[in-house]
Design a protein around this nucleic acid. Structure first.
Lengths: 112, 112
DNA sequence: CTGTTGTATTCCTTGACGGGAATATAACCG
DNA sequence: CGGTTATATTCCCGTCAAGGAATACAACAG
């Protein structure tokens, strides 16, 4: 449950990279092109992901093939676990309430 | 999958607040004291959590009692789902995944 | 209305983060 | 060896978020 993990995933580009690597390992160049990033930018983001333990590198000639390491995700899942119970109850209750009363129960809608 | 949600949870103080609210709803002052935050700081963090939809507020006299709304956590869970498969399948298979591309490099020992 | 409590907001400063350009490093090929 | 490809790193800069102090605002008690 390191801060580094959260910080790494807080960036949309990095989440996109992680999603890319979910499909298959890719080189830095592939990632940069796929996400429309400059090469240095991709390299830097990958460094953050590496240091968060989310990604591992294998060297293939001049290429550096990055692969997802889903292990840290498990700690996210563990962190999420206590809340999971809650939202199951909440959604359940909400559904019931909505069935009974079609009313705006301030569920969310962050208006601004 | 709003960035606001990730940004809100990227901060350790805010994760701590969320954990506090998992136990029971609390007023701003209680939260500030429990986490050793100044009152303005607590108020600001709670605002971020509110705007991320993670917290809802009920007014009790002059107090503002904040309660956790676990619903947004569900989107985190959904985001996590594809990765959950990976680490559930078998962590042993990770090594195989990393060596997915057959090559002459016989060094399979994971570095880092 | 006046004072008091609880909370929100503003102002300011500081440090971290991300992007771009240029450059450095590494691995390969001839 | 020199040259080429792939990636990493550095430097600079604009932006943004967080913290502290002071203040504004809201709800209540009398």
């Amino acid at each position: 449950m390191s801060d580094a993990l959260w910080a790494a995933l807080a960036d949309p580009h990095r989440r996109a990279i992680v999603a890319l690597l979910l499909e298959r390992p890719r080189s830095v160049g592939e990632i940069a092109q796929a996400r429309g990033l400059s090469q240095p930018s991709a390299s830097k983001h990958l460094k953050v992901l590496r240091e968060a333990g989310l990604v591992r590198v294998r060297q293939d000639a001049q290429r550096r093939v990055h692969a997802l390491d889903p292990a840290p995700m498990a700690s996210l899942d563990a962190w999420l676990a206590p809340y999971r119970k809650l939202w199951n109850e909440s959604l359940d209750a909400l559904g019931r309430r909505l069935d009974e009363r079609p009313d705006t129960t301030g569920t969310s809608a962050p208006k601004d």
